[in-house]
């Protein structure tokens, strides 16, 4: 398997495109996280809140984005992970997860990370520092 250390500044980890966002995805995340805010699962509640329909939990998208780093857990771990929730994710949106190396030294790799929807809009954007073991 490729090691994360081999990635150079400007290179990207393989993109991951998720299946279209389903209500069941959000119900599962609500149950697993304990975040039962109904704007994420119940249409009427989302409409009452002035939304066109239910929206994904920001943390669902952030949680998905982190999996780009999971295959490399033997080499290090995600020490810092920051995102800004820039835009809402709706049902049936198709989200692509991206990570590009911004900086690198012997101890850590800093990535620019983003989740992008089917219109090319960055819905979540931030950075992650992957700390390398000696």
């Amino acid at each position: 398997m490729t090691t994360i250390r081999e990635w150079q500044v400007g290179q990207s980890l393989p993109d991951v495109t998720l299946a279209p966002v389903s209500r069941l995805d959000l119900i599962k995340y609500a149950g697993a996280s304990g975040d039962y805010n109904p704007i994420h699962t119940i249409d009427e509640e989302a409409k009452k809140a002035g939304l066109p329909g239910i929206i994904a939990h920001g943390m669902w998208t952030m949680g998905n984005l982190a999996k780009l780093f999971t295959p490399y857990y033997e080499e290090g771990f995600v020490q810092d992970y920051f995102v800004r929730f820039q835009s809402m994710v709706f049902l049936n949106d198709v989200i692509t997860l991206k990570a590009t190396v911004k900086e690198k030294d012997d101890k850590a790799i800093r990535f620019a990370v983003a989740a992008v929807n089917q219109h090319g809009k960055e819905v979540v954007k931030g950075e992650a520092v992957f700390l390398l073991y000696e």
Binding site: L18, D25, K28, Y29, G31, A32, S33, W60, G63, N64, A66, K67, T70, P71, Y73
Partner: peptide, 10 residues
């Protein structure tokens, strides 16, 4: 359950 819910069943 959480790992599955964020699509990361490693």
């Amino acid at each position: 359950k959480f790992a599955e819910a964020v699509g990361d069943p490693n």
